[in-house]
Each structure stands twice: as structure tokens, then as C-alpha cells.
Simulated assay, not measured.
Amino acid sequence: MDTPAELGEFLRTRRARLRPEDVGLISYGARRRVPGLRREELSQLAGVSVAYYTRLEQGQSNNASEGVLDALAAALRLTEDEHTHLRNLARPGRTKRRPAERPDSARPGTRQLIAAMGDVPVVVVDRRFEVLAWNPLGHALTAGHLDARSPERPADRPNLQRLLFLDPHTRELYPRWDEEARRAVASLRLAAGQYSEDRRLAELIGELSMKSPEFAALWSRHPVNSCTFGAKAFHHPTIGALELSFEMLQVPDDSGHRMLMYSAEPGSSSEAALRLLGNVTRSAVTRTEQPTAPRDPKAAMLNAGGDSRPESR
């Protein structure tokens, strides 16, 4: 990804959302050619020269100090996630290395853990939001129309972002799709800044920008948010409507893997619906794994060419 260009776009979008009166500056009513703060106004607030800030916004400086970045973040009233994103874009060479291009996979311990969480839907994703693993309930909740074993095949591994914007079944799953789309783009923006040298991540963004006008429009606004917790509404094809809380937990290593887990409020109709989905899923898994009844030993022997004479009376 073109990190200098991304930095300039990010700074411009954040300047545009602030008015002089929002930050205590006097506006004399002169017609402004661009929305939001001017470069010189932001420079004044951050305590840096206009020339230096202009170079930074134009991607001509890649050695901004922590003090300058902190001052800009304060002047622009950035959130914690936006502040992190600013540092990632402004100083990419100091914080990132090129990720390995070989297919990723969830650790055996992670797979064992999510398998033990039978009553909790869990989906394990990598930094690109590719599904590395899911337990049966996680699969049934989020992508029951897909092959449950697809995460095991890197060539056609599901990607949560691609499904959300390009798969019609997934779109129908979220009655508040616009809200889900904004959340997805904001979290993908943060990942793109953190892993700016990840070629496959850049290819995913390019694909979605080309194939989904809705994604392209949201991406141009440069939203940034980690989206690690919150609530989601579902309209599931099997159990109907439910509202679930979600938590995105980081796996404690440097892999970038995360576990997306869902839960329902105790005593709610959503909890009952989730329990029903669990029962349906377990029944389906049991039928799939049910061993065939053992054949009659005598019939097996006959079929194998044994003695076929009838028994004497």
C-alpha cells in the first residue's frame, strides 16, 4: 500500500471534520475553499511549522517524532485507535516487517480451545480477516451456507470482509447491514495501517474497492476503529432474529490471530434462540458422525465368499 498517500488522506479527512470554533479558533466568516481546518490552523494548534506539517501531509517526511504525532493527535482530537493509526502511517518502517506469504493456520491449542467452547460461537481470523478455524456453532451462526471445512483449505478459505460485501447470503444475515459495513471498513483500515506491507491485504482492499461501490464509498472516508466489542443483530435463516454481544480477543502471540466470540444476554429470547441453534448444530454433527451399524457377521462372511450352504436343521 502507498503509505505516504494514505497518511495524507487520513490527515486531510481529520482536518475536514473539525471547524475552527470546535477547537477554540475564531472564524471571521470568510469563505473557506475547503471544509474544516486549514493547514496553518492545525499547525498553530499542534505547535509545528506550516512547512513541516505540509511535508508530512504530502508524504515527504517519514521521521516524525512521537511528540509531533502526539501533538497532531491532540489537535485533531483523534481517538486512541486513530492515534495508533497515525503512528502506523507516519512511521511504517519502524513498526512493521513484511509478513510471511505462506498460508497461515490456527495453532492446535487454539483449535482445541474453541472446540471445547461448544455453547459459544467462535470464529478465528487472521490479520486479513480470513477464517482460520471455527467451532460448529460459530460456523452455523456466521456462515452455515458454506462448507464447514473450508477454513482448512487456503485456496478457498472464507474471508469475513469479502463475505460481508460480496456474498448475498451474508448480507441477508445482518438486518443492520450498513452498521456492520461501517464497522468492517473501520477495522480493516486499522489493519491496513498496521500491516501496510502485506500484499494480500492490499489485494483484498483492491478487490473490494473494485467490486463493491458501497465498500469504496466507505473506504474513502478513512474510518478507523478496532471494533473489538459491541453488539450485532442477526436474522438467521434457521432461528430467526437475535441480538448478540461480541468480543474480539487477540491470541497471545505475534501471529495477529484473533478469536471472535458471541454471547447473548442471560434470560433473553436471543439466548433461547442461540441455545436452539446449538441443539440443531449438535444434532447435525451427530448425524454426520454417526457410525454405520455393524453388518451381520454371517452375512459379511457370505459376501466375502465364505460357506454359503444353509444351516442343517
Rank of each mutant, 00 (worst) to 15 (best):
A233S: 09
G230W: 01
R176P: 03
P154R: 05
Y195T: 09
R111D: 11
S105D: 13
T288A: 14
L208N: 13
K211A: 15
V224Y: 01
G206E: 11
T228N: 14
G109N: 11
L76K: 04
A299W: 04
Q250D: 15
G193S: 06
G138P: 08
A184L: 05
L42R: 06
G109W: 13
G24H: 01
R12Y: 08
V131W: 02
Q250V: 14
S65Y: 09
G47E: 12
A241S: 04
S196H: 15
L42I: 06
M248W: 11
S43Q: 13
A74Y: 05
F234G: 10
A51W: 05
A115F: 01
G240A: 02
G206D: 08
E101S: 14
A299V: 15
G206H: 06
W177M: 10
Y174W: 12
A241G: 03
P213Q: 12
P168V: 08
P35L: 13
L7E: 02
R94K: 14
P4D: 03
P151F: 05
V124H: 11
G193M: 05
L276I: 06
S187K: 05
V120R: 15
R153Y: 15
G8L: 11
R77V: 02
L89A: 03
A148Q: 10
G305I: 00
V285I: 12
S220C: 07
R287I: 13
P266I: 02
P291A: 07
N225T: 03
T288H: 15
P121Y: 05
S269L: 13
L208C: 07
R15S: 06
L18M: 00
A181K: 02
Y52R: 07
T292F: 01
R128K: 12
P291W: 12
R33D: 02
S196Y: 03
L190F: 00
L302V: 12
S245Y: 13
L166M: 11
R33M: 00
R98S: 09
L137P: 07
N62P: 01
P92N: 00
G306A: 04
P35W: 07
D2H: 03
E203A: 11
F246P: 12
Y28A: 09
L208W: 07
